[in-house]
Every structure is written in structure tokens, then in C-alpha cells.
Amino acid sequence: MPKITDTYANAYACCDQVLMETGKFPTIDAIKTRIGVNSPNTINNAIKAWTQAFAERQLDKQSRPDIPPCLLEGVEQIWKLAALEAEKIYSEKEVAFKNALAESQKTIEQQQKALMQLGVQVEELHADNGQLRTKICSADALNTEITQENKLRQEQIAALETQLISKEAHFLEQEAKWQERQEQDQQWFARRLQEEKTFIEQNWREKNQRQQEAIQSLTLSEESLRQTCVSLSRDHKKVTEELKTLQKTVDKKRRGVLKNKRFPKTF
């Protein structure tokens, strides 16, 4: 048995989806496109296992007596066998009866001719006539038996027709349940798609909101930095002016010192 991985499980589950959507058996390309994983060996093993399970389910359905196609085939075979058997028995009995009647008629004619020709053989002809009557009674009894057998066959056929009608009603009920289940599955898929759509839209809105908040935060940070730069520029300008003033003061003091060195004070 192949090792069951996430790819194998997803590919196996996707086989039913491919069959329902396309009406065809799954292929490696069809499964690969849906699960988004390119692993031909794993997908091929999953398809083989699914195909074997599908075939076993179909064989199991065919082996059960509640499957209408099998019942229809069996009823048709029984009907044909019953009709052939009845026709065969009736034909044989009919031929035998006609032969017996023909033979009896021929014998009667011969006896009548013999009676007309030989009056002395009247008793013998009466005996032969009695035998012929016995054969006719036997033929009548045989005809009655054939009629009863035919009636029994008709009753059996009627019972099979009643059973067939019951199975057809059961099949229609199962078909209605299957259609109802299919409609429920379709509604579930539609609801699931709507939920996925709502979830994606909500995630997008939340992401967009976070981006807007980040942009706003960056905008505030930029404004704060700009104000800081302005303040630093002002401080720099102020410090520069103070340095210039200080430089002027230093230069003035330096010139005073030089002047005093050139012209020293007298005491």
C-alpha cells in the first residue's frame, strides 16, 4: 500500500471531484491542476487506489438484488425461458394431440370401411372404437393439464411483473433521494464558495485597513521628523549667529590686546 501523505490524501479526495465535474475518470494533469502539487508518482498511486475502490463499489452494487438493471435482466431471462418452455410443451402436446386425432380418424375410417366390408368384424371394430375413445379422453386430459400449466405460468409471470413494478418504484425512490442529495451537495458547495468569498473579502479589508493605518502612522512620523528638522534648523541658525557674535567679541578683544602691546601704558 502506498505511503499516505498530504499529497496522496488530497489527490485521492480530488478524484471524486474530477468525476463529478467532468464525468470522466481522473488523470494526473487534472489532479495536479486542482491540488497545485506536481508529484506524478504519488498522484498516480492515489488514482490507482481510487479506481480500484470505485470498481469494487460498482461490483458490490451489481451483486445486490436491489439494483434495478440486474433485476430487469433476470426478469427478462425468466420471461424468455418461461415463454420458450410453455411454447415447447404446448407445441409438443399439440403435435401429439393432432397426430393422435389424425391416427384415430384414420383408424375410424379404416374401421368404418372394414365395417362396411366385413359385418362379421363388428365386435372387433367396437373394441377398437373403445380404444380410440380412451385415447381421445387421454388427449383431452393432456390438453387440460397443458391448460393448467399455462395458467400457472401466467400467474408466475404476473407475480414477476408485480415484483418488477415494486422494484421500479424502489428505483424511482432511490433516484429521487440521489437527486435530493445532489441538490443538497450543490447548495453546500455554493454556500462554501460564498463563505470563502466572504472570508477573502474580510481578510482583504483587514489587510487594507492595516495598510491605511501604517500609511497614516508613516505620515505622522514624517510630519514629526519634518518639525524636528525645522527645529534643528532653527537651533543651528541660532547657534551659528551666537558663534558669529562670539567670534566678533573674540576678534575685538584680540585687536585690543594687540593695540596694548604696541603702545604700552606708562607708569
Rank of each mutant, 00 (worst) to 15 (best):
Q247T: 10
N41E: 05
D128Y: 09
A158F: 11
G256F: 13
T134F: 13
K167T: 05
Q17V: 13
R34Q: 02
D128W: 06
K197P: 00
Q216A: 15
K98M: 13
H170Y: 09
A83Q: 11
Q227F: 03
S91I: 08
P65D: 07
E103V: 11
Q187Y: 04
S233G: 08
M20D: 05
K244G: 01
L118E: 09
Q131E: 08
G130W: 05
V95N: 04
P264M: 03
C137T: 08
V37G: 01
Q211G: 04
Q111R: 05
E94A: 14
L160C: 05
Q58G: 10
N129P: 01
N203L: 15
E76I: 12
K151H: 10
N143F: 15
N143C: 14
N150E: 05
T144E: 13
E183G: 04
L172E: 07
Q154A: 14
Q182R: 12
W188V: 10
N45W: 00
A158N: 14
G119R: 12
R153Y: 12
H126M: 15
T51M: 10
S63F: 03
L193T: 04
E73S: 11
C137D: 07
I165M: 06
Q179P: 01
V18Q: 01
S39T: 01
N38Q: 07
L193P: 00
K3A: 14
H170P: 00
S166D: 15
K113H: 13
K113T: 12
E76K: 14
R181M: 08
D140H: 12
E222W: 10
L101K: 02
S231W: 05
E124S: 14
A30L: 02
V95R: 06
I43Q: 00
I78P: 00
R234K: 15
F97Y: 04
N150M: 15
G23H: 00
I78M: 10
Q77C: 04
K244N: 08
W178Q: 04
Q209G: 03
K252I: 04
T134Y: 10
R234G: 05
N10E: 11
A114M: 12
F171P: 00
